[in-house]
Design a binder for these strands. Structure first.
Lengths: 123, 123, 123, 123
DNA sequence: TTTT
DNA sequence: TTTT
């Protein structure tokens, strides 16, 4: 406690949406599970002509360990979930050797909101 | 009210961090202001050897209209702010003609947390 | 814009839970609707003996205008909802003349999470 | 993992505000620290006559263990903090034997936002 | 590219 | 009871 922490950061994302596909799960070395899926959050609003419009945003969700296994076990395409996590941007080189950036949400909480799959877990 | 809305989406980001540079502001047609800056959120944690480590994440913040003007007026490199907004991913073609994606946070609330610049505004 | 706002406050509550009863709605003067219901948020955790335990917290939710009407129209006992709002504590005198305090959540966003009643509205 | 959890609850409060007084700390049996303070969140808005008005809400914050000790060590009357926690309502009997209810926020994250006291800790 |  |  003597050594005070001097950070003042907060990095939090909160989403409610539907899975675009079934989660993909991998086992990394050390037997660590990681799952991924894309999540659609849909917003409805009125445009300037008063017409109702829908806008969908797609997010890449990454889950580790227990959360990965739960996602794999209980979630499928179309499942409605609440996700809380952190934004993380990483870079990689694509097949043509171009540097690409991708922003992902690393989940630390998952609540399944469908009647048939109501499971909540914290990391 | 008769026409029920069937959306169940939530797309929310909450950040506390420091500006990496002064905000850049532009006036779009129709006299609409848009500002941008990058925001660093820093997290401190202990690695598996018990050593304290720092991890910084950079976010691109986009502000419209009033919020853009406030950012331009009161924020500078280093300012500490609280931001609430939405994730939005858009694509563009870079100079070499490669399709690129960028994920930005479109702010709808800004709280300035420095003693010298304490202004809060909602969109 | 010249007159800068000097507030630095944030007061936000985010809940996912089930209604304990059907909402009660009233029409105040000026034809303003106000609805109330209590919402249970349930948390599951392991106690120090490793036994799984459930803890339920009850919240009083207050909704105004459109949100009140939506709640009245679509929500019933047991409905699963996401609520975002503000904490507000007010005092009143009970029948015996004792001063009482009550803390309520004044909703400004409501997302209905049941399959049968999926409506989202912002204030 | 076989035994699925059926909870779908979320109970989260997020506040930015100033301490009304220095925190009070107690040591409970088992050497567990608990601290309390009240926090003011202030909101500025325009009333229907267009006049700027200020509304302050007071919250009771409860912190346990490490967070209690940090609050005691670094926070004083007037400190600006970000708090994340849970709502918890409990009852007690006052001196006259009346049953009273109090709603508190049990903090699980604290970020100190003053230049002079910038410490962040998770429970 | 920030902050402590 | 706070802060600007």
């Amino acid at each position: 406690m003597e050594n005070t922490n001097t950070m003042r950061g907060l990095n939090k994302v909160t989403l409610i949406g539907n899975l675009g596909k079934d989660p993909e799960i991998q086992q990394l070395e050390g037997n660590i599970a990681v799952a991924k899926f894309s999540l659609a959050t849909t917003e409805q609003f009125k445009d300037k002509n008063g017409q109702s419009k829908t806008e969908t945003e797609w997010h890449t969700i990454v889950l580790w360990r227990n959360l990965a296994e739960l996602a794999h076990k209980y979630l499928t395409k179309g499942s409605l979930v609440f996700i809380e996590g952190k934004l993380k941007t990483r870079s990689y080189d694509d097949k043509e050797g171009n540097k690409k950036y991708i922003t992902e949400i690393v989940a630390d909480q998952l609540i399944m909101l469908d009647k048939q799959s109501n499971v909540q877990v914290d990391e």
